[in-house]
Design a protein around this nucleic acid. Structure first.
Lengths: 143, 143
DNA sequence: ATTATCTTTGCAACTTAGTTGCAATATTTT
DNA sequence: AAAATATTGCAACTAAGTTGCAAAGATAAT
């Protein structure tokens, strides 16, 4: 059993989810890629396993509910997901970091180290969550 | 001719677009609502005029290209658009302001007065555009 | 190890969002 | 008023996402 396999298995157990081929494959993919992935990305990169489209949709939804994945802001295109930090749980997501989308390779990355800037909303408004998406060229594509 | 009608007309002329019922209706709707609108919103609020879905899609695309509307960030749901400031043009959008989505009434507003916070990207990265979406309660729903 | 229980999957069918090609129509220019 | 050009409406399509349900799979209890 590889390292990723055991990490993935632990994560499922931790959240009371059953170990299934689709869930393991999706988790391992996220660990390997270290970038935000869309349903389509996942379907393509797990083609040989032939998981049903619906199963992948449900896997993503379940993982988001349990605090394993968070939705990543992306103006165009489909919903994208990325691995949560350990702080996330069934009860709340703590994904208050900046996200970066490369306009060349289209990868979307979590910049866990860059916290969201503080912003004052006008009076009367109550801010509960915020998302900040930068777009440009990533280190590789900029080189 | 009402004020909105003449403003809408001017805007079309300014961008070399022909005056058509759908375009006028969509522009007037945006002037009245002063909030971001999705294709669906527009379809519903112009029901009696019975514009074709496709025409509305194309109207939105044209307006975005000409710098009359800009796309507004919204994590869930469909694409939303809002009126651009005068600075926008065919060549570039200047929508570098914060957007706010109310979790109760679902309205998305442009906060033209709140500029985007400066954020340093990690070295190697080149930032070209950014979008910042706050979510919470708007002044009305918070009251 | 077998059975019972509960979860997850795969399928089919559906909804909603958005796109494309093209002929008919409307708008502007001359 | 006719010619030139832009825009619309229709039909048909793609892509994203959802729902219900029976069959298969995973875990827990015996």
């Amino acid at each position: 059993m590889t390292h990723l396999e055991s990490t993935s298995l632990d994560l499922l157990k931790l959240h009371g989810l059953r170990k299934t081929p689709c869930r393991l494959a999706v988790l391992e993919l996220f660990f390997r890629e270290r970038a935000a992935l869309s349903h389509q990305n996942i379907e393509q990169q797990t083609q040989n396993s032939n998981f049903d489209r619906v199963t992948i949709y449900r896997t993503l939804t379940t993982f988001e509910e349990k605090g394993i994945l968070h939705r990543v802001p992306d103006l165009e295109g489909q919903a994208k997901y990325a691995l949560c930090s350990e702080k996330c749980s069934e009860h709340a997501h703590h994904d208050a970091h900046v996200h970066f989308k490369c306009q060349t390779c289209e990868k979307v990355l979590c910049m866990e180290d860059i916290p969201l800037p503080e912003t004052a909303a006008p009076k009367g408004y109550q801010v509960k969550t915020a998302s900040f998406l930068l777009e440009g060229l990533c280190a590789e594509c900029n080189g």
